[in-house]
Amino acid sequence: MSDIVSLETRNLECIRDDRVLFSQLNFSVKPHQALILEGDNGCGKTSLLRILCGIRLPDQGQVMWNGLSIQESISEYYQDMVYVGHLDGVKGDLSVAENLRMCTALGSRSGMSIEDALNKVSLSGYEDVRAQVLSAGQRRRVALASLLLKRCSLWILDEPFTALDRTSRGVFENIMSRHLNQGGMIILTSHHSINLTDSSVYVINLSA
């Protein structure tokens, strides 16, 4: 049992439709580290992320946060963890600021203002725009801005670069690098190659 901050998996196994997607999966992520999950479509990347979030139960094994099973420390874990999945969770009927305000009301706040966060993802001036008129890439950026508004050390991201153009990708890579430098942890899946500076990046290929 380690009491330092870390996410650790023990003998994780996931079965879907009679197919073992992965088994005996052991890894750990510590501060300043990023873990990239790779693999072909349907190899269980999203399933793994959802298991790490505690949304899905593993068929075997455990996910440990700071040495405790996440099932036992779910509230503390969710205090420190944020997940952005395939779906942005952005509601079209609400303005960008209203969406972000709701996001922050649900978790721990970093103290950054909504204007600053939008500025960081190059969406300044969009506060009062209804989210339904945004493009897919802009919605994605709103979801990513919510990462900045929360005080969470662990980011779990499912294909964060989907629908982002090259510039936005660069911007977001910088944001991720800064998060890692400040002692954060990131677990993500991505089809794109990622440039993260000064950080230890691990890759796990689930197809292998």
């Binding site: 505690g54 949304i55 969710y78 942005d88 509601k91 649900l106």
Partner: peptide, 22 residues
């Protein structure tokens, strides 16, 4: 329904607060 479709429900479930209260 609509929160399920657009993914907001995931955020709700992943909130550190008691889900039953939400």
């Amino acid at each position: 329904r609509s929160d399920f479709d657009d993914g907001f429900l995931e955020q709700l479930v992943l909130s550190p607060h008691a889900l039953s209260v939400l």
